[in-house]
Write a protein that binds this DNA or RNA. Structure first.
Length: 354
DNA sequence: CACCCGTGGCT
DNA sequence: TAGCCAAGGGT
């Protein structure tokens, strides 16, 4: 069996590379700012979901300087709906650091990039390779799949990651590191897919060990993870007579950090709905809506029962909360679950084009 | 290392 | 349907 050659992958890439908004055309110089921003957005997020956000984000913050100077609320709002909101906070912090500590230019080395907030091993390698053509390994989910299949690596992930980095570096073509990194990802995304991989179209179909054994879909091997326990809670939608909604901002860190929400109870597995009135922000006549809003986070399902009430004009917001006009709701950083709550209360049209 | 951290699309 | 998966990082 022949050993896989980078040249075969690059030849395939030259014919089948995807045209993506953040990707420079053949022979073009990539913009490190756009490469970096796209890599952050693409962390655990699909290309389809990222595209519209990326376009809006670049229109709103065209340069790293513009992003660094923007208020954090504007950054969070531009990110709202994409998920993993610590990425947005770190993205902003990173832009500020690049301007303050690097004169507005991204470091061109893996180590320099790795030291910036929100940039880990993968993203440092990806930006170094793609934006600066450095021979760096960028091992993401795609590359894990491609490499474990190519060499039939039985080791469990994520433990096998260092080994995969070594394999990538050994194969790295010194003349086209950036294209090699992107080619590996394109191969994983379009040919070497998790299910029903198109092995017949793969440039590495001959040397692929897993394909030779017919076991390609069994890779990569992963340790099993346990399911989360459903948490429950109550959400309180209070609409004032002048058309303003009671909102508050979540703490800066942790779940949905820095995002806007209607007041809610705690979210617990043993939450008792009978006592929900004690968690309401004001004492009034609350109407319980049904069915409850369901949402699935990475680690647990959530079931929120929505209560709705109206307040007279002139009502003051309780401490730590604020009234926001419904017309200005689009400027609030609302997470997916809060959009569901407001939809359940009939206050939000699911335009999905915020 | 184990756990936390969103959301949407797929089979 | 329920689970899996996606260009992961921080702690």
């Amino acid at each position: 069996m022949m050993r896989p050659a980078a040249a075969d992958l690059l030849a395939w890439y030259d014919r089948h590379r995807r045209a993506l908004p953040w990707r420079a055309g053949p022979g073009e110089r990539p913009d490190p700012y756009r490469v970096w921003a796209s890599e952050i957005m693409l962390q655990q997020t699909t290309v389809t979901a990222v595209k519209p956000y990326f376009e809006r984000f670049m229109a709103r913050f065209p340069t790293v300087q513009a992003l660094a100077e923007a208020p954090s609320e504007a950054v969070m709002q531009a990110w709202a709906g994409l998920g993993y909101y610590s990425r947005a906070r770190n993205l902003h912090a990173c832009a500020i650091a690049v301007v303050a500590e690097h004169g507005g230019r991204f470091p061109d080395s893996e180590e320099g990039l790795r030291a910036l907030p929100g940039i880990g091993a993968y993203t440092a390698g990806a930006v170094a390779a793609i934006a600066f053509d450095r021979p760096a390994a960028a091992v993401d989910g795609n590359v894990e799949r491609v490499m474990t299949r190519l060499f039939a690596i039985e080791d469990l992930l994520p433990g096998a990651r260092p080994l995969l980095r070594e394999r990538v570096l050994v194969m790295m073509p010194q003349d086209r590191p950036g294209d090699f990194a992107q080619a590996l990802m394109d191969l994983g995304a379009t040919i070497c897919t998790p299910r029903n991989p198109a092995c017949g179209l793969c440039p590495w179909r001959e040397p692929c060990r897993a394909r030779a054994e017919g076991t390609q879909e069994s890779f990569p091997r992963k340790a099993a993870k346990k399911a989360g326990v459903t948490r429950k809670g109550a959400a309180f939608v209070l609409l004032r007579a002048d058309g303003a909604l009671l909102l508050r901002t979540r703490p800066p860190k942790g779940l949905l950090g820095g995002m806007a929400e209607v007041p809610t109870s705690e979210w617990r597995a043993d939450y008792e709905l009978d006592g929900a009135w004690q968690d309401a922000p004001v004492v009034t006549r609350w109407e319980q809506l049904s069915p409850p809003v369901r949402h699935v986070f990475t680690h647990f399902p959530l079931e929120l029962t929505v209560f709705k009430a109206s307040a007279p004009a002139g009502t003051q917001a309780p401490a730590g909360m604020r009234f926001t006009p419904l017309a200005a709701l689009g400027e609030e950083p609302l997470s997916g679950v809060m959009v569901k709550v407001l939809e359940a209360a009939g206050l939000y049209a699911s335009s999905k084009t915020r």
